[in-house]
Design a protein around this nucleic acid. Structure first.
Length: 489
RNA sequence: GGCGCGUUAGUCCAGCUGGUUUAAGACGCCGCCCUCUCAAGGCGGAGAUCACGGGUUCGAAUCCCGUACGCGCUACCA
């Protein structure tokens, strides 16, 4: 049997890391088994659903390179793939259950239900529905109809044990008696989640349902529904929740949790996917860095862990940095351009020479990067016109040794055409010979005068990137500074 | 309240069928090396009475039971 899996988010918010991880596991499973991955949207909650979220989810999935074979945007023969467009189907099945007396109309209003639930809870009893509309007489029904009550359709939950055979958790047994008759069709005619969900899975030929652990308790309801319809349920795999650092379910409170945010900050999709895969899954060979292809090859539901995982931003940052360092310079510098334009460091069309120069800038700074939005901050020294020298730097520049090193540098710079990767080293050697200074005494003053700080890229990168003209400019702008330093003394 | 799931270092986790594991690896942390600085990289270190209490067994992180804690479901949310 060919595997058919689906990711079925509801468009009530942006795609968050938990959802993305669920999508990823479904996708990996489909690709690993040569099956079909389907994207469906569960928008039965019309009040909370919004088109812009649907669009954002699609964009995020594409950014992560999780392509689907059927579903939203691309269609397929099991469509439509939006639940709001499948209402007639749910109604049809609800009617069938009604006819077979496996479901019934319930005229209780939301207010009544809420009140009763509260009372039951107050008495320390089960808050679920008591099944009072199961045996309504014709007269009572007439009366309710007359009052203008719009009924819901509830499923008659049989009293029996339900065993969920879960691919990651093993067999989980539920007592259906504790479930209570649940609503399958709301009074406005819209199907409830548990119902729409299984009708879709069934009619789309879904073979494996891989979803969050929060759905495990829903599964017996759904299995009962499959059984009532006389259909073999799909296989289930419930993956654990993703938690924040405080061990509470990951939410907006924990900062960036939506894939959109990570995308905007310039995380590499391969890093995000690699990290997400490690949340609840461990590759058999123990190697944590894996390309998407390697993940597909090695992924197995049997290796998925049962316990919840805390999302560790630090490790994600490390991993993204790792991917930035191991990607090609061309790729990273192309990806960095939008961020540099945003801050105004780059403007207009990027010429070939500018591009070549940028490549060097990225080469000089990439070891400091965790994600691309940090590019402007890390490359600032190459774009800024005004160098602010730190207090520590001023102290060092005051020294006689520094003055000699810098004036020697100035003289030597003036004599050459341009400072390049090739002549940088000879240049420094020359200064060393002439002044007798080396190491910190030689490098630090140059670093401070050119960048103002004692941290940053290596000098052999900085001088050639800045160029002769800019180096001299920064060197001479020091003259004014030196005067003020003297005055203070 | 009921039902269900989970529990190995700060974090992710390996350890699946009980005995070479002195509990492995990764992030983070600390130190050393490299070095003009910070990173990156290399090397090393600290950090886990395997939640707790009982059993079963010659032997348990690994099997069983109980307790605690965390989480989920218990909605005309998904």
């Amino acid at each position: 049997m060919r595997v058919r899996v689906r990711f079925a988010p509801s468009p009530t918010g942006y795609l968050h890391v938990g959802g993305a991880r669920t999508a990823l596991f479904n996708w990996l499973f489909a690709r690993h088994t040569g099956g079909t991955f389907i994207l469906r949207i569960e928008d039965t909650d019309r009040k909370r659903s919004a088109d812009r979220y649907e669009k954002a989810i699609i964009d995020d999935l594409r950014y992560l390179r999780l392509d689907w074979d059927e579903g939203l945007d691309i269609g397929g023969k099991y469509g439509p793939y939006r639940q709001s467009e499948r209402f007639p189907l749910y109604k049809e099945y609800a009617k069938r259950l009604l006819k077979e007396r496996k479901a019934y109309y319930c005229y209780c209003t939301e207010e009544e239900l809420g009140k009763r639930r509260k009372e039951a809870l107050g008495r320390g009893q089960r808050p679920g529905y008591d099944g009072r509309c199961r045996r309504l007489t014709e007269k009572e029904i007439k009366k309710h109809e007359k009052e203008g009550r719009r009924p819901t359709i509830r499923f008659k939950v049989p009293k029996r044990r339900v065993v969920v055979s879960d691919l990651v958790r093993g067999e989980v047994t539920f007592k259906a008696r504790a479930l209570g008759d649940f609503i399958i069709l709301r009074s406005d005619g819209v199907a409830a989640f548990n119902f729409a969900n299984i009708i879709d899975d069934m009619s789309m030929g879904i073979t494996h349902v891989i979803r969050g652990e929060d759905h495990l308790s829903n599964t017996p309801r759904q299995i009962l529904l499959y059984q009532a319809l006389g259909i073999e349920p799909p296989k289930f795999a419930h993956i654990s929740m993703i938690l924040g650092p405080d061990r509470a379910r990951l939410s907006k409170r924990h900062g960036a949790t939506s894939i959109t945010e990570y995308r905007k900050k310039g995380y590499l999709p391969e890093a995000l996917v690699n990290y997400l895969a490690l949340l609840g899954w461990y590759p058999p060979d123990g190697e944590e860095i894996n390309s998407i292809e390697e993940l597909v090859k090695e992924f197995s539901l049997g290796d998925v862990s049962k316990s919840p995982a805390v999302f560790d931003n630090q490790k994600l940052n490390w991993m993204d940095g790792h991917y930035i360092r191991s990607s090609s310079l061309e790729k990273i510098s192309d990806l960095a351009i939008p961020y540099l334009k945003e801050t105004g460091y780059l403007k207009g069309r990027i010429t070939q020479t500018k591009k070549k120069w940028l490549l060097k800038v990225i080469e000089a700074t990439r070891t400091h990067l965790e994600y691309l939005a940090q590019v402007p901050k890390e490359t600032e020294v190459f774009f800024t016109k005004e160098i602010k020298i730190s207090k520590e730097g001023k102290e060092i520049l005051k020294q006689e040794s520094s003055k000699r090193v810098l004036s020697t540098l100035k003289n030597k710079l003036k004599k050459i055409k341009e400072i390049t990767d090739k002549n940088f080293k000879p240049l420094m050697k020359g200064i060393e010979k002439e002044t007798g200074y080396k190491g910190k005494d030689l490098y630090l003053p140059i670093r401070f005068v050119l960048t103002g700080k004692n941290r940053g890229p290596e000098l052999h990168f900085i001088l050639p990137i800045l160029g002769k003209k800019e180096c001299l400019r920064r060197l001479s702008s020091l003259e004014g500074l030196r005067l003020t330093v003297y005055r203070k003394r």
